[in-house]
Every structure is written in C-alpha cells, then in structure tokens.
Design a protein around this nucleic acid. Structure first.
Lengths: 109, 109
DNA sequence: TACCGGTACCTAGCAACACCGAATACTCGA
DNA sequence: TCGAGTATTCGGTGTTGCTAGGTACCGGTA
C-alpha cells in the first residue's frame, strides 16, 4: 500500500478494529496479524496498540488480562454497549462517505 | 456530521476534491459551496484552500487566475496528467478499503 | 458617503491520528 | 545460552482537517 493509505486509514482504522471486536473479543497482537493477513500489509504494530488504548479510555471496550502459554499475558478487548453504539455511528458516517465517493467515481469517468 | 467524519475525511477529502476537478475545472469557493450542497455540512473553507495549495505544490493540478465580476479574482484549478494518475491510485486504495469494510460489515452482523 | 453582505482567498496555531524506532518481558527450541 | 516468536508499551515525527481570524473586491441601501 502507499502513503495515500496511511492518511485514508485515519479514522477508518478505528472503525475496522471495533468492527472486528464486534464479531469476537481479541487482543492486539492477534488483530495486527489478522489485518496483515487481510492485506493491510504495512500497518504498524504500535498503531494498533495505541488505538486500543484510546478506545479503552473512551470506554468503548472492556478489557480482560488473560495469561498466554507462549509469552506475556494478553489484553483481550471486547466491545461493550457503548462501543456498539459508537460503531453504529461509524457505519452511518462511513455509508455517507462511501455513497458520495461512489457517485463521484461514476460521474468523473 | 460528527467528529468521526473529521478523522475519516483525512486522506479522503483530497481524493474527493481531485475527483471533482477530474470532472471540470473549479475554484476553491465553488468547491466549498458544492461540498456543502452535497451534505458535507461542516467542511471549513480554510481546509479546502489549504488542500488546494498542497495539491498544487505537488504538481497534481494546474492553476489559472480568472477575474470575477463579483469579488477578487478566482484561482481556477484543473487536474493535469500527473493528477489523473494520482487519482487512479486513490481509487485503487479506496476500493481496497471499501471492500474490506463492506466485508466486515456483513460479517459483524 | 458610509456601511453591510456576498464573493473569494489566505494564514497561524491546534488536535488527532498513523508511523517509526526502540525497549521490555515471557517462553521455547537449537 | 542465545535467538526467534509472542505480546505490549512509549516518545517523537509528519500529515491532515478545524478554528478563528484577516484581506480584498463588488453591489446595493440608508
């Protein structure tokens, strides 16, 4: 991916992570790995951890410390009610944006 | 719109403006008005002007100063070859992102 | 004339976010 | 013992959009 992606991810990455957590609880390392797997090849690890701290401080997720067999304990995040609400808003905003862009794309060709 | 939108616009707004310019040349004030019309209710004027300066400095657009009947002269921007190329990349990046998000949205429900 | 609103552009300072690079710490196999 | 994989944290940087002003030109109105 490129430099465009970096800027485009701003604000979107948060929604992506929350959407993942909406499906199932997960921890940072796992999320990073999954994202890389999905083609987000150069998402920095530090970015995900910082993001998780942020959403935790905003009270969108609950955290549980779970011991790991192969390394330091994991911090498993799960989306709570407030987070679900926030995610709904995210989808609304995203839809709005996606619609305008799709329109522009058609019109511009 | 909300604070989510502000962050989500980062990186995307540039593509939006370039996509507009791909359709027809335009000047800042006009673009701002059009965006407001399209529902981007709280995009600040200064934001657009700053963005236009940036894309000009990167050589993605050409500029022509055109006198106006009702105010200071307009700076009319038009997308050049390099800008068109850049816009193509933007659409590629956007498509990638939009696909992942659409998938997440389905899966998460 | 004086003033206001619409047109049109510009700028300095701020906050948020993703990235980079490095550090810490735990476990296991060579 | 040492490296590799697992797992998290942190300080500093660059880019971006927003805030909140300012400049300037024009027409109409009081």
């Amino acid at each position: 991916m490129g430099k465009q992606a970096t800027e485009m991810l701003k604000g979107t990455l948060e929604g992506i992570v929350l959407a993942i957590l909406a499906g199932r609880p997960a921890y940072g390392y796992e999320i990073t790995a999954w994202l890389r797997d999905q083609g987000f090849s150069d998402i920095a690890e530090g970015t995900i951890y910082a993001l998780l701290v942020r959403v935790e401080q905003r009270g969108l997720v609950d955290v549980a410390k779970v011991p790991s067999e192969k390394g330091p304990p994991r911090k498993v995040y799960s989306l709570n009610a407030q987070g679900r609400e926030y995610l709904e808003e995210f989808w609304t905003t995203w839809s709005f944006l996606a619609e305008r862009l799709e329109q522009l794309r058609k019109g511009g060709k």
